[in-house]
């Protein structure tokens, strides 16, 4: 956490002059489940990026690639996995209910406590 400043050292009126400085605030600690890549290949459709409420899908705009997850901020809601079209395809083809952390998925949600690098 930033050091607390005195009244002489902050802008008046409650103004915040540093736009977007919330990036310095980690919300990844909230996470109970972690998004992890599974076996199914990412097709870089960016659907997860579009629907991530926390702007926590890392992308390479130049090469148009989805790179992974911003775990500093990802809160583990699992929307990325639920909207992933590859996941949907894997589920359809499996012909059975797949657990959220099934390794066959493209984006799987793994319980933080069970996660191993």
């Amino acid at each position: 956490m930033a050091e607390l400043k005195g009244w002489r050292d902050i802008p008046i009126g409650g103004m915040i002059l540093e736009a977007g400085n919330a990036v310095e605030y980690p919300t990844g600690t909230w996470r109970a489940f972690r998004p992890v890549f599974g076996e199914a290949k990412c097709i870089h459709c960016f659907t997860c990026w579009l629907y991530c409420p926390d702007s926590s899908i890392l992308v390479d705009p130049e090469n148009e690639k989805m790179l992974g997850f911003d775990l500093e901020h990802c809160k583990g809601c699992g929307i990325c996995a639920s909207v992933c079209p590859v996941n949907a395809k894997v589920r359809r083809e499996a012909g059975e209910e797949l657990a959220r952390d099934d390794p066959r998925l493209c984006i799987r949600m793994v319980e933080e406590g069970k996660f191993q690098e």
Binding site: G20, N21, A22, V23, E24, Y25, P26, T27, W30, R31, Y51, C52, P53, D54, S55, S56, D70, E72, H73, K75, G76, C77, G78, I79
Partner: peptide
Amino acid sequence: LTPGHRLCAGCGASI
């Protein structure tokens, strides 16, 4: 809208 906001996980508003 940057990450680091404190809306609940899965909130529709920030989307």
